[in-house]
Design a protein around this nucleic acid. Structure first.
Lengths: 334, 334
DNA sequence: ATGAAAGCGCTAACAA
DNA sequence: TTGTTAGCGCTTTCAT
């Protein structure tokens, strides 16, 4: 193992070829005679040569790095997303840079600017940016938005319109007549989109639907959300995500309200904890890792491809029925 | 907003100065006259100039990027660690690259090699590498190991020896006379270290201690772990982490074994779910985010500093008593 | 198929 | 304080 790393020059000299040949052997193997190539690679191995990615990026303008910007790294839901993205990136020899936007559109923008020259593209997960800003951003950067749809931009979302419909239908079939949506952050596209779907489904099925909030998508804000929900008289609460739903259930328990006998509670994401809390949480889940994977894939493709197609991928979701939903007014079965 | 980004040359020309002056204005501001500096920066802003990090890294040999390699990104415990590290890095204008080693020492090593030239240093979290390999690695790379101690290497660990002692003492005070440690992966330093501490404390306090395993630190392997624990006749099981503990409790419930009346269960990490499962889990927690933060800080310091000090930081832990531990043979109180 | 040579955008001596 | 200039390690024409 060398102290100081060798360069293309060292390899070229040791192999008795030109530097360009060494370069080709690594980045354009079929432009080099088979024997020369093997020889060069062998020498390179012996010398412990590793291409310098910065030198490479400087001239080729490709960094083999992608950045994933998440709205809030604190939310366990992003875990799977990040995991899927990391694995897919690694599989193609790409590196994943992780950025936490801390729920701030400003930080989000700042970081994108900061990283512009260092990465080949961006995955913007649950971006809090206005659509126009995103479009402008995408004019200068390679971008895939995740869990958000912006016409004209490549995107991957976990299906949720149909999911919301099923959710409401599930509640309706249990006998609920009034539901309340405990909304997520004002700037969350998901929150708006879900509310539209819930309201639509409720109208169709003859339920009353109200919206309260916005609430931060955290356990802590579940207290306020629960109290708000109770004032509406609704027998079912659909929380913006599982964290909020768990917080709501906590507060309801504290206030002596039974779930699901008095109030049914539903969440989104199917985080790990959804299957552990008491009662276990009915929620809209799906393969979040696939979302991350697909997003990276689209980004990588967009770098090779003709360009300018903006695929909008929808990964299927599934409504997972657990113990937090039930017939209103009836104590939980068994 | 320019289509193509401007360089130091554009700025230099537009500002009527030499390129080196522009360079200094950005990377060494106090080596430039105040008025020139302001002028240059103003022009740069107008031109939308952004320093190219690769060009910069190529000559300066600093990338302002650090990599965090985690043994298994699937484990929610790493979440906090990653979060702390990301925030600390960002605060210093550094970028955090995330790498999942998938529990494989080989992948761990491969990735470190792959990233050598792209990052200024590595955070190796719960490394599965043998100590010798780590030392060798550290000879050629700037490394901080996290949640592992290797003499001679900078490290940050969440305190757990004293934590294990308190854990055993807690169990002893409840009347337990025999405990079993459900060990984590064979290559986990933590697993070895915890067993040593548990065994020591048990001996001191006159308890019988056994070890079973190794088990993968996942919910899924909790089944086998629970069955193994039952064969020992111990009244208390200390699982390698919360995931395993939760899996154990599930299996015990399935087998009709009461927790904590029949068997007490303890975990490590205090993941979010530990406070949600039934019964809630007694566990050794602590500020994992601080661990991540500190690790980055040590890494960054080691880049400026005289060098060759290898601080070993210990972040305090706390034993969090919940409902999964109790007096053996007695149904849970209230 | 291979080599020579010109940069990519920046920093860091060294001069002035 | 500022300018000149030689690279950093690599890719990529353009020749051969």
């Amino acid at each position: 193992m060398q102290m100081t790393s060798s360069t293309i020059y060292d390899v070229a000299k040791a192999a008795g070829v030109a530097t360009s040949t060494v370069s080709r052997a690594f980045s354009n193997p079929d432009r080099v005679g088979a024997v020369t190539r093997e020889h060069v690679l062998e020498v390179a191995r012996r010398l412990g040569y590793q291409p310098n990615p910065h030198a490479r990026a400087l001239v080729s303008r490709r960094t083999r790095t992608v950045a994933m910007v998440v709205s809030d790294i604190t939310n366990p839901h992003f875990f799977e997303l990040i995991r899927g993205a990391e694995m897919r990136a690694k599989a193609s020899g790409y590196t994943l840079v992780l950025v936490n936007a801390e729920e701030s559109p400003r930080i989000e923008l700042e970081q994108v600017h900061r990283l512009t020259r260092s990465v080949d593209g961006f995955l913007l997960a649950a971006s809090r940016q206005p659509a126009d800003d995103l479009l402008q951003l995408a004019a200068n950067h390679r971008v895939v938005v995740v869990n958000r749809r912006v016409p004209g931009l490549a995107s991957v979302v976990l299906e949720h319109a149909e999911g919301c419909r099923q959710m409401v239908a599930h509640l309706a079939s249990l006998g609920h007549e009034s539901v309340v949506y405990l909304a997520g952050p004002r700037s969350s596209w998901m929150a708006a989109s879900r509310w539209a779907a819930i309201r639509g489904a409720a109208a169709e099925l003859g339920l009353r639907a109200q919206r309260m909030g916005p609430f931060a998508p955290t356990v802590a804000s579940g207290g306020a959300a629960a109290d708000a929900a109770l004032t509406t008289g609704a027998t079912a609460a659909i929380a913006h995500n599982d964290l909020l739903a768990i917080g709501v259930m906590r507060r309801l328990a504290d206030r002596g309200v039974q779930v699901p006998a008095d109030v049914s509670v539903v969440g989104f994401d199917d985080i790990f904890a959804a299957d552990l809390c008491t009662p276990t949480l009915t929620t809209l889940g799906g393969a979040h890792a696939d979302v991350g994977r697909a997003a990276v894939e689209i980004l990588l493709n967009s770098m090779e491809q003709p360009r300018d197609l903006a695929p909008e991928l929808v990964v299927p979701s599934e409504l997972i029925l657990r113990r937090s939903t039930g017939v209103p007014g009836r104590p939980a079965g068994r």
